[in-house]
Amino acid sequence: MPRITREQVLYTARLARLRLTDDEARAMTRHLEAILDYAAQLETVDTEGVEPMSHVMALETPLRSDAPQAGLSADDALANAPGSDGTHFLVPKILDSETQA
């Protein structure tokens, strides 16, 4: 049983908003399978009861005071935009099926 199937690769690509050609999907499946095969060595380690580590820092997140500071001007904010009407970022029409609440 393969560790990752072509269908899973295509599903994952959709989640990541990547579109793969047939050739790319084939190559990606092969590469990811090789990497996941290699990663399978982790299965041999007993990690029962071991705390997962998100960060090596044993510190707590610092807090800042609630003092607003000048941000970017609207011009600077939009300066790099591939699509803009001078006040908003413009994107292709969001379809009903794409709507997120």
């Binding site: 607003p68 609207a74 904010a77």
Partner: peptide
Amino acid sequence: QSKLFSTAKVGFGDAPNHNVNELCL
């Protein structure tokens, strides 16, 4: 007064894209 993770101002009814900084974008 300011956003959850950035120092940009919280406002209502301001002109679009005026209360933003690098994190909001």
